[in-house]
Amino acid sequence: MRDLQDAPEAAWREERSKVEIEGWGRKLLSRQDEDGQWAGGAFVPAGFTPHEWREHGQPWTATCWALTQLREFGLEPACACARRTIDLVGRNSRWDHADEPYWQGETDTCINGRAIADGAYFGADVSAILTRLLSERQEDGGWNCERENGSRVSSFDTTINVLEGLLEYERSVGATPQTRAARRGGEDYLLCRCLFRRRSTGEVADEQYLRLTHPNRWRYDVLRALDYFRDAALTDQTAPDPRLGEAIAIIRSKRLPDGRWALDRSLRGQAWFTIDEGEGKPSAWLTLRALRVLRWWDRGQS
Rank of each mutant, 00 (worst) to 15 (best):
T179K: 10
R180D: 15
A181Q: 14
F122I: 04
N144Q: 12
G186V: 00
G174T: 09
D157F: 12
R171I: 11
N161T: 10
L166T: 06
T158L: 06
E136G: 08
L191A: 11
S151K: 13
C194R: 15
A124L: 01
E139K: 14
V162T: 00
C145H: 04
G186C: 01
G185Q: 08
T131C: 08
D188F: 10
V173M: 10
A128P: 09
S172W: 00
I160E: 11
N161Q: 14
Y169C: 03
G174A: 06
F122W: 02
F122Y: 07
L191I: 12
E170K: 12
F156P: 05
A117K: 03
G186D: 00
C145N: 02
L190V: 04
R147F: 07
Y189Q: 02
T159M: 06
S154A: 01
D125G: 02
G119M: 01
I116Q: 01
C194I: 13
L166C: 06
G165K: 02
S135R: 12
V126W: 04
Q178G: 10
I160T: 13
T176C: 08
I160K: 12
S135T: 11
T159P: 05
S154F: 00
N149T: 15
R152C: 12
E146W: 12
R152P: 08
G150Y: 05
E136F: 06
E170A: 10
E146Q: 13
Y121A: 03
Y121W: 06
G186L: 00
N144F: 08
T159I: 07
E136Q: 14
G174I: 09
N144L: 10
S127F: 10
D125N: 13
W143V: 02
V173S: 08
L167N: 07
R137K: 07
T131W: 10
V153F: 15
S135H: 07
C194V: 15
T158Y: 03
N161F: 05
N144H: 14
G123F: 00
